[in-house]
Design a protein around this nucleic acid. Structure first.
Length: 738
DNA sequence: GAGCACTGC
């Protein structure tokens, strides 16, 4: 079944502009000479390892419903295969398009740019990209790069993905939550498209007057009214209306089969192949420089210490022009510790040894400091990049020849009984190989694993797919909204536990997104329109009746990033003082709101942000989310300017419509206990309510690290909790008066 | 007394 592609292929590439329709905006004289540029890049394209397999790849994809392609780093699969498809004429002269999904936004945009250059068209013409907040595509776009999350949203609007004849899933081996949902849904869509296409072909043959399609299994749009949510619980919705084919599938005449291409970097291709009914697997050789791997002879009890010593050893034993050092650590704390150790040692290096410059990089680090890893090191200096997993896949740092692998990373986990966790765990073999590969991007390199070879042998082959270790309420809502009746029977490539699925169903039921029969309610359908966790969508819904939609949208947007502030380890006091300016006695939600207002007042001034330890990039992301939610809410008929003014208690109250499960009460001994599980809950030290004895609180999330921490906490009156969830907590008395 | 990485019409 599996075959290796090594066929020579002498067929020259076609003229990029002679294939398919031409771009609309031509002429005018001033436009850059795209064609000349494409011709210039052609020799590079033809020199890629994958080029020799070009015709075999096209043949396999056009002849099979699904093809799995394994290509190592540097094979060129990501940029070339989409172009081969474009050249193959699979888009029926431009009537249909090709979608290529990426797990990350930057990848989608940068690859689209590169491919547009190679094809010889302006970006947004025949080749374009679409990511959240940014659409660089047009009606002429036949090759669209997008994030996998975006294609998922597209399925909600177009359940059969009618505009596409091919969907390419890149980086499928990463098994992100969205890749896994896409895999399942695409399999479904492919089956339905084949059926419809067959009917179309039959109809063409017999020219039958009326075609009959099987009963529709997808739900139709319904609407939700605002103003009196108490009253319209029951009599809302039109779910019983007779199905109208066009509303569901749109025009299906002429609809053809959907081709799926699964691209993966590792050798777990067999599993993808099995999942897609034994789809053929093509292997494409990559181009990587050799990396020599070393293990420690004994297990290391302290990997921070080991990382520090290994760095010094490499630095003194190899010439400084032999490349920079990249150290993989688990998180900010690790990184700051190793940085401190290195700075101490760097100050005491023997004479004649070049300087050592530690460069930390992790997601929460402000942009300005992140970009330092890309700056060339000063004269006679070697850079040591101290990184989290961010350097494993998300960004590639040039100049790296030495990799030090601690063998650990932090993993977000979820268990319906224990809740969410964030713990340091050993990495997988494929992750270790990925880290190693980072030393061989530009030349032969070295990888130093801070664990023994025997330990390596014990590591799991692959990490557990995200879908098996995260909350599923949003996944389930999305599946329900795209017409999956029984999520327990959905064909997941890796099935989440029954418990986790049930937990999600119960959560959605509690939020009134599902009814007694487990069917999507009109409110549930409404909530699924939001690119948000269902709890947040519920808060926005409740804000209409509470008269605080403005504030609800603001705060929900603020909660969509995980660090509004950046606190360097050595400036905790200073930053605490600076943050007092925004602090609300009611807790973090209103503190964040104050921050947003202050940020807007100074127009996001970067000096102001620095002085207040505000993460500017993240607040700007908040503004993007806010704008998107504003538009969506306006479209759904909400009054987005409806504000509660100074009555901010009503916003907090409104949050309980989504967060009644996330409440805790102060105990006589000064600790907190959660209302739903009676677990001991600790207010996170970064919270504005830390150390305060607030009688009743609700929190945005509960995460176990070394303790169970409530992050983003606000004070509430327990009577509000009783009113938000009378069946669960109706007995609670108010704690505000007296 | 302390936060891995992503994503969303």
């Amino acid at each position: 079944m599996a075959k290796t592609v090594v066929f020579p292929d002498s067929e020259p590439l076609k003229d990029p502009l002679s294939v398919g329709s031409r771009d609309k905006k031509q002429g005018g004289g001033k436009r850059p000479d795209y064609r000349a540029q494409a011709l210039r890049l052609r020799p590079q394209r033809q020199a890629l390892p994958i080029y020799s397999a070009r015709s075999a790849i096209i043949k396999s994809i056009t002849e099979n419903a699904t093809v799995v392609i394994v290509g190592e780093t540097g094979s060129g699969k990501t940029t070339q295969i989409p172009q081969y498809l474009l050249e193959s004429g699979i888009t029926a002269g431009g009537k249909t398009a090709i979608a290529v999904t990426q797990p990350r936004r930057v990848a989608a945009t940068s690859i689209a740019k590169r491919v547009a250059e190679e094809v010889g068209t302006p970006l947004g013409g025949r080749v374009g990209y679409t990511i959240r907040f940014e659409d660089c595509s047009s009606d002429a776009t036949q090759l669209r790069f997008c994030t996998d999350g975006l294609l998922l949203r597209e399925i909600l609007a177009d359940p059969l993905l009618r505009r596409y004849s091919v969907v390419v899933l890149d980086e499928a081996h990463e098994r992100t939550l969205r890749t896994d949902i896409l895999l399942g849904m695409l399999k479904d869509i492919q089956r339905e498209r084949t059926r419809v296409a067959q009917l179309n072909r039959d109809a063409e043959q017999t020219s039958a007057e009326s075609m009959e399609y099987a009963p529709d299994h997808r739900s139709r749009g319904t609407h939700v009214k605002f103003g009196e949510p108490e009253e319209d619980e029951k009599n809302e919705g039109d779910g019983t209306a007779a199905p109208v084919m066009d509303e569901v599938h749109g025009d299906v005449s002429g609809l053809d089969d959907l081709h799926i291409v699964v691209m993966s970097a590792t050798l777990d291709a067999e599993r993808f192949s099995e999942y897609f009914d034994k789809a053929p697997i093509l292997y494409v050789a990559g181009r990587q420089f050799p990396v020599t791997t070393y293990y420690t002879s004994d297990p290391q009890s302290d990997y921070l210490d080991a990382a520090h010593l290994a760095t010094l050893q490499i630095h003194t034993d190899t010439p400084s022009d032999s490349g920079d050092i990249l150290v993989f650590l688990s998180g900010q704390e690790d990184i700051e510790n190793v940085e401190r150790l290195l700075l101490d040692s760097a100050a005491n290096l023997p004479k004649g040894v070049p300087s050592l410059l530690p460069c930390p990089i992790f997601a929460a680090l402000p942009q300005a400091q992140q970009s330092r890893v890309f700056d060339p090191a000063p004269e006679f200096t070697r850079k040591v990049i101290l990184a989290t997993n961010i350097a494993e896949t998300s960004l590639t740092i040039p100049g790296i020849r030495h990799v030090i692998d601690s063998g650990v990373h932090k993993v977000r986990g979820f268990d319906p009984r224990v809740g969410e966790s964030l713990l340091v765990e050993p990495i997988s073999k494929s992750s270790a190989r990925q880290r190693t590969g980072r030393a061989g991007r530009e030349a032969a390199g070295f990888c130093y694993r801070l664990y023994t070879e025997a330990d390596y042998a014990q590591l799991p082959e692959d990490s557990i797919p995200e879908i098996k270790r995260c909350q599923l309420s949003m996944v389930v809502l999305q599946l329900k909204a795209s017409g999956v009746k029984d999520v327990m029977k959905f064909d997941f490539m890796d099935r989440p536990s029954r418990k986790a699925l049930k937990h999600a169903l119960l959560e959605l039921y509690a939020l009134d997104a599902l009814d007694d029969a487990g069917e999507l309610t009109p409110l549930g359908k409404w909530m699924s329109e939001f690119p948000l966790e269902p709890t947040y969508a519920k808060v926005i819904y409740a804000s209409a009746a509470a008269g605080c939609t403005r504030e609800a949208i603001d705060i929900v947007s603020l909660l969509s990033v995980d660090s509004l502030f950046y606190v360097p380890a050595d400036k905790r006091e200073e930053s605490n003082a600076a943050q007092m300016a925004f602090r609300s006695a009611d807790g973090d939600h209103l503190t964040y709101l104050n921050l947003l207002r202050a940020f807007n007042k100074v127009n996001g001034d970067s000096v102001w942000c620095q002085e207040h330890f505000v993460n500017r990039r993240n607040v700007r992301h908040v503004l993007d989310v806010r704008q998107q939610l504003n538009r969506l809410c306006a479209r759904l008929g909400m009054d987005i300017e409806r504000s509660c003014g100074t009555d901010l208690a009503s916003v907090l109250r409104c949050f309980l419509a989504g967060f009644f499960h996330n409440c805790a009460m102060l105990q006589p001994d000064g600790t907190y206990r959660s209302l739903n599980g009676s677990q001991a809950v600790n207010i996170h030290p970064a919270s504005s309510l830390f150390g305060k004895k607030t009688p009743a609180i609700f929190y945005d999330q509960l995460v176990f690290t070394n303790k169970l921490h409530a992050r983003a906490v606000s004070a509430v009156d327990s009577a509000w909790i009783a009113q938000a969830a009378p069946k669960l907590y109706g007995r609670l008395q108010s704690n505000s008066s007296t």
